[in-house]
């Protein structure tokens, strides 16, 4: 099981957190088109590479944070940032 570096709680089992998903910008609801909105909802890049992703420390500090992880090796790099761009689903 992955150890996820929570900025507040330190390295925690990934089961202590909720994986929110790939971080991506939310289109402006005032100007977005249905196509663009559904791309935001459903079409993720899912690269085999470094990726910014958001986690929620649901069993710890209950903070959302964003961090860079390599999806093939599960290495993390660079310090996590508080908050982040949210995924599409609750």
């Amino acid at each position: 099981m992955l150890l996820v570096p929570c900025p507040n709680c330190g390295p925690r089992n990934s089961s202590d957190l909720r994986y929110v998903g790939e971080s991506h910008k939310r289109p402006d609801p005032a100007t977005t088109t249905p196509e663009e909105w559904r791309t935001y909802l459903y079409m993720h890049k899912n690269p085999a590479d470094w990726m910014m992703e958001t986690w929620y420390c649901s069993s710890g500090c209950r903070r959302f944070f964003t961090i860079e992880r390599h999806t093939a090796t599960s290495e993390f790099r660079n310090p996590p940032l508080p908050g982040g761009k949210r995924g599409g689903r609750a």
Binding site: T54, Y56, S58, F64, P82, G83, G84, K85, R86, A90
Partner: peptide, 16 residues
Amino acid sequence: ATVWEWAENWLQTEHP
């Protein structure tokens, strides 16, 4: 639990 997390999600990510 879902709604609590949902509220926190918006407050912490889009509208801090």
